[in-house]
């Protein structure tokens, strides 16, 4: 079974490839959707093509599937049109899969299941990374705002934080927002920090 993964994101493709190799698929090729990727695909002649549903190059790929004379068998999207649940899960996860005609559903299903799981895991990972980055940036903002309060009002660190928190609660805003506003105001007023 020859599988091609078309993907822009090096990391996501790697995550998917690793999963497939662990599951015992050895014939896997990574193809980024740039330049003459269609010609490359024709040379590889895959049984299954996995692609990010969000890639703008899907139209280019489908055109190639429609006109290619190099690919002996027609390739159609998804496995079995009757399997609505799986198609829904694939679209939700952002996976599109093209499969050569005649490949049995039970041979393709595990691959698609795996791709869906890996894509979901990858987007969870990205969300967590984003959240971690935001949390870190917010902590820095709050630290700077605390420093301003400590310096200009002579508060200790705990009181400075308590003041930010009470202000945020009274105004129904987030602490990071209040801290941001304080930093802006302080810099407008010619503060050092």
């Amino acid at each position: 079974m020859r599988i091609v993964i078309i993907d822009d994101s090096g990391l996501r493709a790697t995550v998917l490839e690793e999963g497939l190799r662990e599951a015992g698929y050895a014939d896997i090729h990574l193809v980024p959707p740039h330049g003459a990727f269609v010609a490359k695909l024709e040379r590889i002649a895959p049984d299954v093509v996995l692609m990010d549903l969000g890639s703008p190059s899907r139209d280019t790929l489908e055109e190639m599937l429609a006109v290619s004379r190099a690919l002996a068998k027609p390739i159609a999207m998804f496995v079995d049109q009757s399997d609505e649940d799986m198609i829904g899960a694939a679209i939700d996860a952002g996976v599109s899969a093209y499969v050569v005609d005649g490949l049995r559903k039970d041979r393709v299903k595990p691959i698609l299941d795996l791709a869906i799981r890996r894509f979901n895991a990858f987007s969870r990972m990205q969300t967590e990374l984003e959240e971690a980055k935001t949390a870190l940036a917010e902590r820095r903002t709050i630290d700077r705002a605390k420093a301003i309060l400590i310096e200009s009002r002579g508060l200790n660190e705990a009181d400075a934080y308590a003041l930010l928190r009470t202000t945020a609660m009274n105004q129904g805003r987030r602490i990071a927002e209040v801290a941001e506003a304080l930093i802006t105001a302080s810099s407008l007023l010619g503060g050092k920090i």
């Binding site: 969000g54 703008p56 899907r58 139209d59 829904g88 679209i91």
Partner: peptide, 15 residues
Amino acid sequence: STSWATLRDRLVYGQ
């Protein structure tokens, strides 16, 4: 959506 293929899939599969 970022491609016509994906837009079509979302409509055809009822998303």
